[in-house]
């Protein structure tokens, strides 16, 4: 199989790599580039563990071929922090005990940030709807919903230094 040369901008860093036509984006990120924060739970678009942002929107990176992502901006869980500060969604998950084994968490957080960007003040129902593509076997979801609510409240607060809240991969950057 002929390999393809592609470029991916992951969390702001450009990477050139060569991939097989069939290589999934998630495997390119994990195995080729070492962004192992993104997890694989099913490889068949059902669990959401592999969710990243591509060009500002949440996608399941097991449904995207690496070659399809050529030239795109990708944000992963590793890009959520700004400097030493956790993103409000990370704080939310931590404060609300929104994770146990943590395997679903990176994908949950990436979906949740996308959800909050589109709907900054979601109801609990809307949070559940927004996260329906992400499975968690540990938490029973209630504390995940709390975590997203917590983050929404935090994001609603004016940012102290007057700067803008950083949306991974999104407009706010």
């Amino acid at each position: 199989m002929t390999d393809h040369e592609i470029t991916l901008t992951v969390n702001g860093t450009d990477h050139e790599l060569s991939v097989e036509p069939r290589t999934l984006l998630v495997h390119a990120l994990r195995d080729e580039l070492g962004y192992t924060g993104t997890n694989v739970g099913c490889e068949t678009t059902t669990c959401g563990a592999c969710t990243v942002h591509m060009d500002g929107e949440a996608v399941k990176s097991c449904t995207v071929l690496a070659v399809q992502a050529d030239g795109e901006r990708i944000e992963t869980v590793e890009g959520l922090e700004s400097g030493d500060d956790y993103h409000p969604i990370q704080e939310g998950f931590r404060e609300e005990h929104g994770l146990q084994c943590g395997y679903c968490t990176p994908g949950m957080m990436m979906t949740a940030t996308d959800l909050l960007r589109e709907n900054p003040d979601p109801s609990r129902e809307e949070i559940r709807e927004g996260l329906e593509g992400n499975l968690c076997r540990c938490t029973g979801y209630q504390n995940i919903v709390n975590a997203v609510e917590n983050a929404a409240a935090e994001l609603d607060e004016p940012v102290a230094d007057g700067g803008e809240v950083r949306w991974p991969g999104g407009e706010g950057e």
Partner: peptide
């Protein structure tokens, strides 16, 4: 109290078996 295992898990630093090369 908040869990001390969470910082690694919410930043992607945690190492699961398949992460090992």
């Amino acid at each position: 109290i908040e869990r001390r295992e969470d910082p690694a898990l919410i930043t992607g630093d945690a190492e699961y078996t398949d992460d090992i090369q």
